[in-house]
Design a protein around this nucleic acid. Structure first.
Length: 591
RNA sequence: GGUCCCGUAGUUCAAUGGAUAGAAUAGAAGUUUCCUAAACUUUAGAUACAAGUUCGAUUCUUGUCGGGACCA
């Protein structure tokens, strides 16, 4: 049990003992004590002074006495300042903690709790390659899956591929017009980029045709409707729905090229899925649910035959669920897919990693599922993340300001190579080891940059400044790990039974910080927020670096000190490794 | 027009209603006969504005201004 939890529970019991009043441990606020005061953890008393009819000072003294006398192995003393009860944790407690955990490779992992969680992420369109925004999605999805696993959940990772619709038809039309039978192979192009290029060509041609039509006297709107390439794309979609063999063949080919390209990128960034759904298989789902909803009175039919749900009582609008021509809409498919996933996996929780422009959509989706009585409805959670913007503003594919995922990764890796060569610390590495190191550092920097921010918030990516390996970055943490490993190679491992009697302040800081790791992971899992782990691991590395410059490990004052410091170093490396792995980031042995 | 989100150092990010608002970076000044200087130490710098709620507000409420998203 964590120290903070122990303090909360002990305080709750003490208040019960002293005053006969029940206060839940969860309602007791415990913070790390500010550095300018004496103590390690602080109980904030203001919240109870009214209820207990005590002055903050008297309450602090009484509670402090009660806690210290009943838990001598945990607390070594206390002081009260204003309404704050500052508790000092016994040094022995930290020493015991380090002695018990320093070699535990599973430290931070929780025993399986039998709860199954689905994480749907990535979810690309098949008409263009991945960009920076997709990377945030992929890193978040992968990371939250790892964090949930570490928290004892069984995780099923899924992906829904948007492989049908007007967007892919546009690429298909352009390919027919301009490709002359070219393929990714014949042109030496990565498949997703190849198809994306035709999507761009379509738009260029479309613009040209619209301009011509406008020059001939059409309105903009008419021109956009009548442009031959647009008509062709729409016809293509109808033909696809009708199952025209040559259209289906082309569609399969182009999607296949895209998947080949994606799989290369996924391999590099570490995205994988237990189950991939394709919209071409799922887009008709949910139709039967509309009828069921009508029967149940959840939905209603308008005179024109269209079917709606009235969500005004829940503070939302009325929402269309089936058009008057009987075709279903986006949300209907999602309800159908939610039902199918539930039948297939029966997960308690279903997390959708999707951008915040769909906040409303997911509110509606969850509400409708609840009203339809789907068993999985309450477990729907939209892990909503903000857009990644450039210093110049939004990325716009039309203006060519989109940051391509493959390009960016290549740049990061190249920068890692350049920096590594400048420093010249790993000249004895083989070519294979070097490439692995560059990948580790370059991708580590990129992943850390995108994960260190609260997912909900929009963030700015500055291509020049964001490629930085100093400070609050992945490589900073990787470097700390490598340095620890280098020490451990020289000192050999710690033994369990030799420890000094006391701790220096920097040693204690490390121990305290290491002790909170499981709580941080639990917090990150609860809030679906990998940034908490990122911030934690960064702080741990920083504390270690201060400790490292101040105190020698290999040449410590005594054999006991040396052993303790090796234990601390070993455990720090372990927690960095575990923490970074939940972010999908590897840490090198040397760099 | 309606609904929702966001405004914190020059910049990029922190801060479950709690003590003097933390980091990083950019700026200034230092640290290498000693475990990897991709490091460490010191220094300066911010809650958009105005009310309210209370022992206490970056956090909650209302309004203003600014930015963004969604729904037609």
């Amino acid at each position: 049990m964590s120290v903070v939890t122990q303090i909360k529970e002990a305080s709750s019991r003490a208040i019960q003992e002293l005053y006969g009043i029940e206060i839940q441990p969860l309602d007791i606020l415990v913070n790390a004590t500010k550095p300018e005061f004496e103590g390690d953890y602080t109980v904030v008393l203001f919240a109870f002074v009214k209820q207990l009819k005590k002055s903050p000072d008297a309450l602090g003294q009484e509670l402090g006495n009660e806690l210290v006398s009943n838990h001598a192995q945990l607390f070594s003393g206390f002081n009260v300042i204003k309404g704050f009860l500052n508790l000092s944790i016994a040094e022995n407690y930290w020493l015991r903690f380090i002695g018990m955990q320093f070699a535990n490779e599973q430290y931070g992992h929780v025993q399986p709790n039998g709860q199954k969680v689905m994480v749907e992420y990535s979810s690309p369109n098949t008409n263009k390659p991945l960009h920076l925004g997709h990377l945030r999605n992929n890193f978040l999805g992968r990371s939250i899956a790892e964090i949930l696993k570490a928290s004892g959940h069984e995780v099923v990772k899924t992906c829904i591929v948007n492989d049908r619709g007007i967007h892919i038809c546009k690429s298909m039309v352009a390919w027919q017009l301009f490709a002359n039978g070219a393929t990714p192979k014949s042109t030496g192009t990565k498949g997703d980029h190849f198809v994306g290029d035709y999507y761009v060509k379509f738009n260029d041609e479309f613009k040209k045709q619209v301009a011509t039509l406008v020059a001939e006297g059409k309105t903009q709107e008419e021109a956009e409707k009548e442009a031959p390439v647009m008509r062709a794309a729409q016809q293509m979609l109808l033909d696809w729905e009708a199952g025209k063999p040559d259209v289906l063949l082309l569609w399969r080919n182009m999607n296949h090229w895209v998947y080949e390209g994606f799989s290369v990128t996924y391999q590099i960034i570490g995205s994988d899925f237990d189950k991939t759904y394709y919209e071409s298989d799922t887009y008709l789902l949910g139709k039967d649910l509309v009828d069921i909803g009508l029967e149940k009175g959840v939905f209603y039919q308008k005179e024109d035959g269209s079917v709606w749900i009235d969500l005004t009582a829940d503070g939302l609008d009325e929402k269309l669920v089936r058009r008057k021509d009987g075709t279903s809409v986006y949300i209907t498919q999602d309800i159908g897919l939610a039902e199918q996933k539930q039948k297939e996996f029966n997960a308690a929780q279903s997390i959708y990693v999707v951008g915040d422009e769909q906040n409303y959509h997911f509110k509606v989706l969850k509400l409708i599922c609840q009203k339809l009585g789907l068993p999985s409805a309450d477990g729907i959670y939209h892990l909503s993340y903000g857009m990644v913007e450039l210093p110049t503003g939004k990325m716009k594919s039309r203006e060519g300001t989109v940051v391509d995922a493959d390009d960016l990764i290549a740049e990061m890796v190249a920068f890692a190579k350049q920096k590594t060569e400048e420093l010249g610390k790993v000249k004895d590495f083989t070519d294979g080891e070097l490439h692995e190191l560059y990948d580790t550092i370059g991708l580590g920097a990129l992943k850390f940059f995108l994960l260190r921010v609260d997912p909900k918030k929009r963030m700015v990516f500055n291509p020049e400044e964001s490629i930085d390996f100093h400070g609050f970055t992945g490589p900073f943490i990787q470097y700390t790990h490598a340095r620890i490993k280098s020490i451990l190679r020289k000192t050999g491992p710690a033994t369990g039974n030799r420890q000094p009697a006391t701790l220096l302040p920097l040693e204690k800081d490390l121990a305290i910080h290491l002790e909170t790791f499981p709580a941080v992971l639990a917090d990150a899992a609860n809030d679906h927020d990998p940034s908490k782990v990122a911030i934690y691991v960064f702080n741990l590395a920083k504390i270690f670096n201060s400790f490292y410059t101040e105190h020698s490990i290999a040449n410590a004052e005594s054999a006991e000190k040396k052993n303790l410091r090796i234990q601390l170093a070993q455990m720090t490396a372990q927690v960095i490794k575990t923490g970074m792995s939940t972010l999908g980031i590897r840490v090198p042995e040397r760099m």
